[in-house]
Design a protein around this nucleic acid. Structure first.
Length: 502
DNA sequence: ATAGGGTTAG
């Protein structure tokens, strides 16, 4: 219909291309492109820019660059579109290079350019360029007070890990919108500052700003990590009340939250209610089942994936293999590990090798593990050696443990967990002197054992238990119950491995 | 008259 337009001009072509870009109509856009060449309009800068934009949204970044390079005339929009095309397809370095080239060509960036190049800084963690841009625009009131630029700056500082600068800037912003708050909250969650993220969320509610989907996903993520089931449930109720669809990002975040907070049935309920599930939904549910000791159900829904046409990825397999590992399903684990490359064309990564070492090691197949590691096509890292050390600890393999420890020490920095495991191996073999020597070495290196920690929420209060911590208000009672449980276990023939130094 | 922007998962 559009291509029947016989005499296109420099107004109609950009207009039509814009709608092609919006609907990702590749063939139609290419026809328009051919028309613009045929009618000698392709050198017009508006036509160029919309063509670049069209190919950018279709993912043909190399072609965007080719059009740009081949054009006799380029303006600020052409440069911005090029930079944007690079950022959107993950070429942040090239985006920043293009920006520097643009500055060298004596073009001054405007708000749009700055937002795009700042997002490139975020992706790549280029704090120095981001800060330089911030300093340069500090005194240009028109730009500095722009909410888009401000949001991009907050996001840049957050993603570069400079939370203080992000917070300072956020507090100074003359105009804020929901995206400003989201940038701060999501950024804090990504930096692992979950409690701070929830504080900011409460501030946001205090001023009466309504959260949107992005806010809720970030808050749910914080709940998952803090074990805040009650707040998570509140978010769920909020979603229902406001008729927000529990699909996509929101649904997946809900599944993850319930699973990580131990409410695996609730997680499954949300999962089942989702209209369009994707690989994220399935992976969250598989990992959720695996974490909650439901290996069978994890594998059941994994088996469902090919039937609904969703291809598992590397992360899905981490969930599948860890499910097998926890349930001691050696055969099944092997099969899935082999299917990764054979069926799904996925290259197993160090996490997957680690899971396999864990699986075989727990089952006591120590010589198999050694062969497995020797045949690894990639260099085994701390993840793999750590899994083997764990197996040595379970099965009391002192010599092998020592050898593994040497490997771990060679990969700096050694985490405290490795020292603890090795020290436990020595203790099990009654080699107390060696165990103590290791403890001393840890002390000299100023390492402290990260205390084991578990979180549980009862009636809206999160109870945090750390090893050796006696600060819980009902500590005495808790110890008494634990003691009773230990006696009960012993009566049934289970003895705690109390020869471990902790 | 026509063109370019920021935040969200497993």
């Amino acid at each position: 219909m559009i291509t029947k337009c016989i005499y296109p001009d420099t107004y109609t072509i950009p207009y039509v291309l814009k709608s092609c870009a919006q609907s990702h109509a590749l063939e139609e856009g290419q026809q328009i492109h051919a028309h613009s060449i045929k009618f000698g309009l392709s050198s017009n800068v508006y036509v160029l820019n919309t063509l670049m934009r069209f190919y950018a949204v279709c993912g043909f970044t190399h072609y965007v660059k080719k059009l740009f390079d081949g054009s006799p005339e380029r303006d600020l929009v052409s440069w911005t579109t090029l930079i944007q095309a690079f950022v959107k397809t993950g070429f942040a370095k090239e985006a920043i290079q293009a920006y520097l080239d643009m500055c060298r060509a004596n073009l001054r960036p405007d708000k749009m350019t700055l937002v795009v190049v700042l997002s490139a800084c975020s992706r790549i963690g280029d704090l120095s360029l981001g800060t330089r841009i911030h300093e340069n625009i500090c005194y240009i009131h028109d730009i500095y007070s722009d909410v888009f630029v401000g949001n991009a700056l907050v996001d840049m500082y957050m993603k570069c890990g400079d939370t203080d600068s992000a917070r300072q800037l956020f507090d100074k912003m003359p105009v804020k919108n929901v995206v400003s708050w989201n940038s701060l909250i999501s950024g804090l969650v990504q930096q692992g500052q979950f409690k701070e993220a929830l504080h900011v969320f409460h501030d946001m509610q205090r001023i009466g700003l309504r959260p949107d989907c992005v806010t809720l996903v970030a808050v749910l993520n914080a709940c998952s990590n803090l074990g805040k089931l009650e707040l998570g449930k509140w978010v769920h109720a909020y979603i229902d009340k406001n008729q927000i669809k529990a699909d996509g990002f929101v649904g997946n975040a809900l599944v993850d939250m319930y699973a990580k907070c131990g409410s695996v049935e609730q997680a499954f309920g949300v999962f089942q209610g989702m209209q369009c599930k994707d690989v994220f939904s399935y992976t969250a549910m598989i990992v959720g089942f695996a974490m909650n000791g439901e290996a069978e159900r994890a594998l059941d829904i994994f088996a469902e994936m090919p039937m609904v046409g969703i291809k598992p990825d590397e992360v899905t397999f981490v969930g599948v293999l860890s499910a097998c590992s926890h349930a001691g399903m050696v055969e099944e684990g092997w099969r899935h590990f082999e299917d990764m490359s054979r069926v799904y064309n996925l290259e197993p990564q160090t996490e997957h090798y680690g899971c396999m070492v864990d699986l075989l090691g727990r089952a006591g197949l120590i010589s198999e593990v050694e062969v497995f590691i020797a045949n690894m096509p990639i260099e085994p890292d701390a993840f793999v050696w750590g899994a083997l050390l764990g197996a040595c600890s379970i099965h009391g393999k002192v010599e092998l443990g020592e050898a593994v420890m040497k490997k771990l020490v060679a990969i700096e920095p050694v985490r405290d967990g490795a020292y603890i495991l090795m020290s436990n191996i020595y203790s099990s073999a009654n080699r107390w002197k060696d165990a103590l020597k290791l403890r001393k070495a840890m002390k000299e290196r100023k390492m402290k054992k990260t205390p084991g920690c578990s979180l549980i929420e009862i009636n809206g209060v999160v109870h945090e238990f750390r090893k050796g911590d006696k600060s819980h208000p009902r500590n005495e009672e808790l110890r008494k119950v634990l003691g009773e449980m230990a006696i009960c276990l012993q009566n049934h023939g289970h003895f705690p491995t109390s020869n471990f130094i902790t």
